[in-house]
């Protein structure tokens, strides 16, 4: 146990070190991207305020903002600011971008968690059921449904759900995060339908793989009841894979909510980013891209570490083979 902990510590250290170039890459890429546009901040500000600046005024503003410096220097200064939590001000509202991002993050996290919960409630039982009834009618039905879910883009799913549940049946509010618990149902369902379609198949595959192992045949031969094999051994063994899959989905969900948030007027960071795109509010987009990537990397890292810690079969440090 002691040796394991030592190795675990070493592994965590190694993974944290690997994180540095990735974080630098994320920031560099986002920085370059926002500087790749033909119009710089001053031009955007000019067209936004409607004021016509003279070339000299523009030049002065560029100097104030440090836009006349060489790119590497600009990047270095900007990076220091980013780590201080200063990502500039929104070109539209004039408010600090980082604070705006932080204030909208809880709504996105809330939606993400309800969606993951709904995905678990849908995908795990359906996946297990499909595996147990492999190649029977129920299995085909579940696989057929997951196939349909996989072929539906989530903006279409959300519009269909709004059409039926809000407009036709009048059961649920169409939009907004202010309508209490009812308003979270449709966006959650939208995200859960596409996620569950994907994960039902993977849960099914994980359970099937475990059921095809020799010890299951052994238990069957000894006359152990099917139910006991399933709940006692098979599910226990495949749970680790399933939990890892779902934890990884949290990260991709955080980034995948943009369209759904903007359709349902859900006041999270995704909607903030989509609104910023139409207004060409580059600092906001930049903050969104960087922090989403950082959160995603962090969630994946934690998942990976927990997986390594829990699974005795995984040899530490052998992942880059």
């Amino acid at each position: 146990m002691d040796r394991k902990e030592k190795r675990m510590k070493k592994y965590i250290g190694k993974r944290l070190l690997q994180l540095i170039p990735i974080l630098l890459g994320i920031t560099l890429l986002s920085f370059l991207l926002m500087n790749a546009g033909t119009a710089d901040m001053v031009d955007v500000m000019e067209s936004r305020t409607g004021a016509a600046f003279t070339e000299e005024q523009k030049q002065q503003m560029r100097e104030e903002l440090g836009l006349d410096r060489p790119l590497p220097e600009q990047y270095a200064r900007w990076l220091v600011d980013v780590f201080r939590g200063d990502m500039g001000e929104s070109l539209v509202s004039g408010q600090p971008v980082f604070q705006a991002f932080v204030s909208k993050l809880p709504a996105t996290i809330y939606l993400t968690l309800t969606s993951v919960l709904a995905t678990i409630l849908l995908a795990v039982p359906l996946g297990i059921l499909a595996a147990v009834k492999q190649n029977r009618l129920l299995d085909y039905l579940i696989r057929f449904l997951s196939f349909i879910g996989n072929s539906l883009p989530n903006f279409f799913v959300s519009l269909l759900l709004i059409y039926f549940f809000s407009l036709k049946l009048g059961l649920l509010p169409v939009m907004g995060s202010s309508g209490g618990w009812k308003s979270v149902i449709l966006p959650t369902l939208t995200l859960a339908i596409s996620m569950a379609s994907k994960y039902t198949r993977q849960v099914r595959a994980a359970v099937l793989e475990e059921m095809n192992k020799d010890y299951v045949s052994g238990a069957r031969a000894r006359g152990v009841k099917e139910r006991k094999i399933l709940f006692g051994s098979v599910l226990k063994a495949s749970m680790l894979t399933i939990i890892t899959l779902l934890a990884l989905s949290v990260g991709s969900l955080l980034g995948g909510t943009a369209i759904v948030e903007s359709i349902f007027m859900w006041d999270g960071v995704g909607k903030m980013a989509v609104d910023a795109i139409t207004m060409r509010d580059y600092p906001v987009i930049q903050a969104y891209v960087i922090w989403m990537a950082v959160i995603y990397v962090a969630v994946n890292l934690v998942t990976d570490l927990v997986y390594h810690y829990l699974d005795p079969r995984v040899r530490l440090g052998s992942e880059d083979a």
Binding site: P21, I22, G25, I26, L29, S30, L33, M34, A36, G37, G251, S252, L254, G255, G256, A258, I259, A273, V274, A276, I277, R280, Y282, I285, Q286, Y288, V289, M292, A293, I295, Y296, V297
Partner: peptide, 24 residues
């Protein structure tokens, strides 16, 4: 491979949204 790690570090469509928004 490090470069591809960086691209893979952006979740889902987030980076695509940023690229597309810059390119108008």
């Amino acid at each position: 491979m490090r470069l591809s790690d960086v691209f893979l570090a952006f979740p889902g469509m987030v980076f695509a949204i940023a690229v597309a928004s810059v390119m108008s």
